[in-house]
Design a protein around this nucleic acid. Structure first.
Lengths: 142, 142
DNA sequence: GGATTTTATTTGATATATCAATTATATTTA
DNA sequence: TAAATATAATTGATATATCAAATAAAATCC
């Protein structure tokens, strides 16, 4: 039976955890009060205006229940406006606020620096290959 | 500002999530009642007898509080024995039970099949490279 | 040898993940 | 059009992640 630390998935799990912890620490250290997951949802709303919660869930590969709760916190923090969709009253229309846009912009230098530091010593070809292979893996699990 | 889906870390996050969900489903579908995280801790105890909780936390890159709670569930399910360490009474000695060993062995074919399926179409060289590059990333975040 | 510091673990609080059940609204269909 | 079905989101339950505070025991230090 193979040992855990010989297995790619073990390393995969470890790498994303280590990166997440590192990135979250950098954000907190710079005085910003937002979690990585909240940031991810907020960034999605910055890239695509007027999404429904279902659409967000798909884009960030989280489930609906998690999105409900994350949106709640983002609305509380006034980073997101939530209004009922008048044409389909089951839905909400979600839109990033000015305060939300400012947060994303303010944090952006930290985010790029985090990514840069995490990828030190990897060539752009290696990074591209990594991404391509992970995308294969994703398709295989569907 | 780069779009989320162009970023390696987004793909990394997605790949581990998709794999975890896939693997968990396969385990449930075969009638086994154990989570991926419980399995990970149990497998660690199968590979290394008589670990303390701190040592486990380090091996599976989880924090102490999570380990406390996962161990509790494994003890409840009788997969793990927990006894106080007589030489250092702050510690516990944790040992996988026969039932725990059986669980790991029973599940093993599912685990290998999951991994195999997830890595379809990747050469062993590509897999090796992936692992090496992820390990670089891990070191960069320390 | 008693006070201080360190270590191992637990507990509480809050965020997130996941599943199942529920609610409200839309759509389809008979 | 009324009944059945589908969809969007919420809520409750349980597992996990993370931080901070608390507890208990061990090690160190003066």
């Amino acid at each position: 039976m193979e040992k855990l630390d010989e297995v790619l998935f073990y390393t995969l799990e470890k790498s994303i955890k280590v990166y997440r912890k590192f990135a979250q620490n950098q954000i907190l250290k710079n005085g910003y009060d937002i979690t990585i997951d909240q940031w991810l949802v907020l960034k999605t709303l910055q890239e695509n205006r007027l999404l429904s919660q279902n659409q967000i869930a798909e884009l960030v590969f989280k489930d609906f229940a998690s999105i409900t709760r994350i949106i709640e916190l983002l609305v509380q923090k006034q980073y997101v406006n939530r209004t009922i969709n008048t044409t389909d009253r089951r839905k909400f229309e979600l839109e990033i606020t000015k305060k939300g846009i400012k947060m994303i912009e303010d944090i952006y230098p930290i985010v790029t620096e985090n990514r840069k530091q995490a990828l030190t010593g990897l060539t752009s070809g290696e990074i591209k290959n990594l991404k391509i292979q992970l995308e294969k893996l994703i398709i295989n699990c569907k």
